[in-house]
Amino acid sequence: MDAKELQEELTKYKELFHAINTITLLANTASSTIEEAQIYKQFKQTISELQAMNETSQELNANFRLYKIMEFMSKQIIQTFHAQEVGFFLFSKDHNNLRVLPGTTPFFLTKQSKIYTDLLEAKIQTEKESIFIGDFNLPHINDSKKFHSLMAVPILLSNSIKGFTIVMHQKPNYFTLETFNLLQSLLFHSSLALTNLLLREELQHMVITDHLTKLHSRNFLDENIQYSMKDDPEGTFILIDIDNFKEINDTFGHQVGDDVLIQVAKLIKENIRGNDVGARWGGEELAIYLPRVSIDEGLAIADRLVKTIALCTFPKITVSCGVSYWNKDKHDTYKYLFKRADDALYLAKGTGKNKVVAQKTA
């Protein structure tokens, strides 16, 4: 190899070496950029998680209404963990029944949800620990809406399990272990405030409940409507009167009359949600307040209740209903809301009974 060829070879090696150095530099830069991006992403996630914890803590300390807190918790969990379904459940005193708390997404009110709630309830009752399932898959589940990623965290008070929270997503392995740990931390800090709120609610319930019907008192109803008219966008009020109640007492006696009231109250409770208010208005008159429910939905509920009572009571009785409604678009007062319902009830009683009549004006 002469000097010229040697020079050409050296030039090639220099160019190759320069190319290798350039590629190495680019690779290191890219690696550094990717690493920085990952760190930035983790930093943003941590900030988001701390913010969620701080907001939750503030809400728990500031709000004393159960349904408000539970709806806030549900919103926080969905936003923070991008969950598709969230459920909050409390055990009855004998642990044989579950109470679905406000804030639970509608899926958990369907039959399909029972597969998941039964499984997770049994595991929590047995293992008494939080549950993390990355890919839940039962072959016999034919429902198209299958949930593979599941997290369940017990609600504890003095080391006793009072209930549990379920968080779900359809994609397998959607939640990470870091997500699971954060959920446990979030719910751990919330459990004490929640259980204290439930204990206070239970004590209040003893004070604000009508002894005979076990419905709420008139005062409790009044207070809730006033709260709702400050905070909510709309609401529906239903005033209910048992038709021919005096004749029932005269024919069968006051004990049967009391039993009729108890039967109607039970049917009311079975046909309203947890944050709705069923109350004893006075005598044979009962009432229901439905916060954030439109007039059309309220009329449908009242109509269903009238039909159910006519079919399911013994001795057979009927009821008449007057329905009124308010929304934030129009100035209103709770006294005028009652008057409209009372006027509508008077019309229902005077035009045949066993029917629902809505307010004439809003």
Results as ranks from 00 to 15, higher is better:
5 E>R: 13
11 T>S: 14
12 K>R: 14
15 E>L: 13
18 H>R: 15
19 A>K: 13
21 N>K: 14
22 T>C: 12
24 T>S: 14
33 T>R: 14
36 E>I: 09
37 A>E: 11
38 Q>D: 13
38 Q>V: 14
40 Y>Q: 15
44 K>E: 03
49 E>P: 09
51 Q>C: 10
54 N>V: 11
59 E>V: 08
69 I>F: 04
76 Q>A: 04
78 I>V: 14
83 A>Y: 00
83 A>Q: 02
84 Q>D: 08
87 G>E: 01
90 L>G: 02
106 P>G: 03
106 P>I: 00
122 A>V: 10
123 K>R: 15
124 I>V: 11
127 E>Q: 12
131 I>P: 00
134 G>D: 12
141 I>F: 01
148 H>F: 02
151 M>Y: 06
152 A>T: 02
155 I>E: 02
160 S>T: 15
160 S>N: 12
161 I>E: 05
165 T>G: 03
166 I>M: 09
169 H>G: 02
170 Q>G: 01
172 P>V: 01
183 L>Y: 03
188 F>T: 09
191 S>V: 05
194 L>P: 00
200 R>M: 12
201 E>K: 11
202 E>N: 11
208 I>Y: 06
212 L>M: 09
214 K>W: 06
218 R>T: 10
221 L>E: 05
224 N>G: 09
234 E>M: 15
238 I>C: 05
246 K>G: 08
252 F>G: 10
253 G>D: 08
261 L>V: 02
264 V>Y: 04
269 K>R: 14
280 R>I: 06
282 G>M: 07
285 E>V: 07
286 L>D: 01
288 I>G: 00
289 Y>D: 02
291 P>S: 01
299 L>F: 09
301 I>S: 03
302 A>M: 06
304 R>H: 05
305 L>R: 01
307 K>L: 05
307 K>I: 05
309 I>N: 06
309 I>A: 07
313 T>K: 11
318 T>Y: 04
319 V>T: 03
322 G>Y: 10
323 V>K: 05
326 W>A: 04
328 K>H: 14
329 D>S: 13
331 H>G: 08
332 D>S: 12
336 Y>N: 08
338 F>Y: 11
342 D>K: 06
351 T>F: 03
354 N>W: 06
356 V>S: 05
358 A>L: 10
359 Q>K: 12
